[in-house]
Simulated assay, not measured.
Amino acid sequence: MRAIVVTAGVAGSLRLDRDWPEPHPEEGAVLVESLAVGICGTDHEIIAGEYGETPPGADALVIGHESLGRVLEDPTGTLQPGDLVAGIVRHPDPVPCTNCAVDEWDMCRNGRYTEHGIKALPGFARDRWRIPPKFAVGLEPDLADVGVLLEPASVVAKAWDHIDRIGQRAEWQPQSVLVAGAGPIGLLAALVASQRGLTVHVLDRTPTGPKPALVAALGATYHTGTVGELDFEPDITLECTGAPAVVLEVMCKAGHNGIVCLTGVSSGGRTIDFDAGALNRALVLENNVVFGSVNANRRHWELAAAALGRADPDWLGSLITRRVPVEAYPEAYTPTGEDIKVVLEFAR
């Protein structure tokens, strides 16, 4: 079968292997036909050789962690042939740590978790894959064209879940939300905020293209200036760019009792001349909270599936700006600077 693979840690090793072995039954009872995989910055970093870990005994890493497929067989009876599913990316560590022991593998404490297409587990960019039923999340049939967005939506669902938990520290009635960055994570974060009836603002540096209209369709306000130029202090901020300057700016802009969730991953290696003392003073005196969030557990994946089910499917479909057949895979993994989400299609 076909698989998109890399030699882990070797830049420029991306290739299509047409003779990749069928998934071994030990990978899981559920056999899935791959429909599509989404492509994100993590994939580009793995292709650049910045990280990625080959599964034990394998000579290459199948990439792809944003999945969508149809069940071919499930002898456990948990799923039925034809069911639409996505595979949960992270699996718990073998120890397990206290969090992995209670199915909170997204909060793994010792770093020994594994991840499909990233760390020691084969990814979903292959014609067929297997997964244990516990890590297969069902989707409604009407999400067949957009279900590949479930993985980024799960990241957003976790972020909102933890925002809610932090907000319960006191009487809290948030009204305004700032989302920094209008990539897939940012737009999905704005979607969930709009579903909650909040006043939503999205900040992005791109003044043209589809992003302003997508934000407007949510009833939200689109901004292209700087965080400092905004004329309000948000109750909730989701930072989805990882740009160091923006990270610092949103921390300084939070309103009283504000919560800032950082979902963007910075590359590091840069320093900024910054008044850390002033930030500390504001965080303390205003009871603000800044926290980071990554990955998701099954509960978050199910919350994400529900959020996608409530959304306008045409709006969700507009997030996917390019669909590329697997045989033309180099095109899919070549950034254009104009895409929101690129999807590599295995079957339709």
Rank of each mutant, 00 (worst) to 15 (best):
L178Y: 05
A180C: 14
A180D: 11
A180F: 08
A180Y: 05
G181F: 00
G181D: 09
A182V: 01
A182I: 00
A182P: 11
G183E: 04
G183K: 01
P184A: 11
P184R: 02
P184V: 07
I185W: 08
G186E: 01
G186D: 00
G186H: 02
L187T: 06
L187C: 05
L188D: 10
L188I: 06
L188T: 06
L188Q: 10
A189K: 10
A189G: 14
A189L: 03
A190H: 13
A190F: 03
L191K: 10
V192M: 14
V192S: 12
A193T: 12
A193V: 10
A193S: 15
S194E: 04
S194G: 00
S194R: 09
Q195T: 08
Q195C: 03
Q195S: 09
Q195Y: 08
Q195K: 09
R196K: 09
R196W: 02
R196H: 05
R196A: 00
R196I: 00
R196D: 03
G197P: 11
G197T: 11
L198R: 12
L198H: 13
L198G: 05
T199S: 13
T199I: 09
V200M: 02
V200A: 04
V200E: 04
V200Y: 02
H201W: 08
H201I: 07
V202S: 15
V202R: 12
V202L: 13
L203D: 07
D204S: 15
D204E: 15
D204Y: 07
D204M: 05
D204A: 14
D204N: 14
R205H: 07
R205V: 08
T206V: 12
T206I: 10
T206R: 14
P207D: 08
P207L: 00
P207W: 08
P207A: 08
T208I: 08
T208A: 14
G209C: 00
G209W: 01
P210G: 10
K211D: 08
K211V: 04
K211G: 02
L214G: 05
L214A: 12
V215A: 03
V215D: 07
V215K: 07
V215G: 03
V215W: 01
A216G: 15
L218N: 03
L218R: 08
L218H: 06
L218C: 02
G219M: 13
G219E: 15
G219A: 11
G219V: 13
A220C: 10
A220Q: 12
T221L: 01
T221Q: 08
Y222P: 13
Y222Q: 13
H223F: 05
H223Q: 06
H223T: 08
T224F: 09
G225M: 06
G225N: 09
T226Y: 05
T226H: 06
T226G: 12
T226I: 04
V227I: 15
V227P: 12
G228D: 15
G228W: 09
